[in-house]
Design a protein around this nucleic acid. Structure first.
Length: 314
DNA sequence: AAGACGAAAGTGGTTGA
DNA sequence: TCAACAACTTTCGTCTT
């Protein structure tokens, strides 16, 4: 049966209404070549199933040449809908039982068919996730190599099926966050949260999901990890940084670092170091870059001074 | 006047039943 | 799942430089 009757140009129809929610606010994402509903965000062009052939014939000759059997191609399926599916049944086309040897062969074929399909679904997900990752990464300004490992983390999570049921964006954000921690330049969760359109709870959930699912052994960020970044933002010298690190080391020897917010500790150490090195910074300034309050800096640094019996001739 | 201090009440996350 | 808990924040009045 020819599939070419009466459907010339059906694929050229302009989309004016969202098939999901009926909205008429239709947006075009030229960068990705998608047509998107302005209200529900669904990708319409990807969902439209064109019942006609994907080619057009202008002459009778072309029609004859191009006619063929099979469904039209659709980009909705990773294999463009052209694949043959190997059935699970253990009988052949005539209903006879297959020999054990043959059955094993079919089983192997089927396994690989399923596997390749999974792989392409991963590729499709990645195609969506990677631009997102780049966006988040460049907005909070993280270097290329960390992006790379964020991508690796995300891919692993994806392959483990951890992304299923969560939004791609939140998982990408979580991957970025974790990659930063892996590289010892942790960014606060809120910073990632502010550029990703994900609420904190969801983001934290995803982070834990990945941590548990991938068995990542990421050392918990310590105060020392924050020193250089904070010091740079405060334009404090290497001398101050060195002193701050010493302060932290002594403090942890005294066992007063456990359970405390490492950023608060780093902030307090920098405050003390600033005084010692003669480049004092106001608690407010430090609090700002460390994303903690002055009160926390005060509490920490009071405690350190008390426990270490330091003398700050101010 | 700016910065530092500390008390008190409030908030979000962890832990253990 | 819920309540208790510790750490941290917010707010605000006071003190110091």
């Amino acid at each position: 049966m020819s599939k070419t009757e009466g459907n010339e140009d059906s694929s050229n129809k302009e989309i004016v209404q969202c098939p999901e929610c009926g909205s008429r606010r239709i947006l075009r994402d030229y960068a990705r070549g998608d047509t998107i509903c302005g209200d529900c965000g669904i990708i319409i062009s990807d969902l439209m199933i064109d019942s006609g052939p994907e080619w057009r014939a202008f002459t009778a000759e072309e029609k004859r040449d191009r006619s063929r059997v099979g469904s039209p191609m659709t980009y909705r399926m990773p294999d463009k809908g052209l694949s043959t599916t190997i059935s699970r049944s253990d009988r052949d086309a005539y209903g006879r039982k297959l020999s054990p040897k043959r059955r094993a062969q079919i089983y192997r074929l089927r396994k690989w068919q399923v596997r390749t399909r999974v792989h392409s679904s991963i590729a499709r997900n990645l195609a969506q996730a990677m631009p997102e990752l780049n966006r988040i990464a460049s907005q909070i300004g993280i270097p290329r190599d960390i992006r790379e490992s964020a991508a690796v983390v995300y891919r692993k999570a994806l392959e483990k099926g951890l992304v299923r049921g969560r939004s791609i964006e939140s998982m990408v954000a979580a991957a970025v966050y974790l990659a930063c921690r892996l590289h010892k330049i942790p960014r606060p969760l809120d910073e990632v949260e502010s550029v990703a359109r994900v609420n904190r709870k969801e983001l934290a959930h995803c982070v834990r999901l990945i941590l548990r699912g991938l068995d990542l052994k990421i050392p918990r960020p310590t105060a020392t990890d924050f020193i250089s970044r904070f010091a740079n933002e405060l334009s404090m010298s290497g001398e101050s940084q060195k002193r701050a690190l010493e302060v932290i080391e002594k403090a942890s020897e005294m066992g007063i670092t456990g359970g405390k917010d490492p950023t608060g500790l780093a902030a307090a150490a920098l405050y003390i170091a600033g005084i010692l090195a003669g480049e004092r910074r106001a608690q407010r300034e430090i609090a700002e870059v460390a994303h903690v309050t002055e009160v926390t800096i005060r509490n920490r640094y009071k405690e350190i001074v008390r426990k270490l019996k330091m003398d700050l001739e101010v």
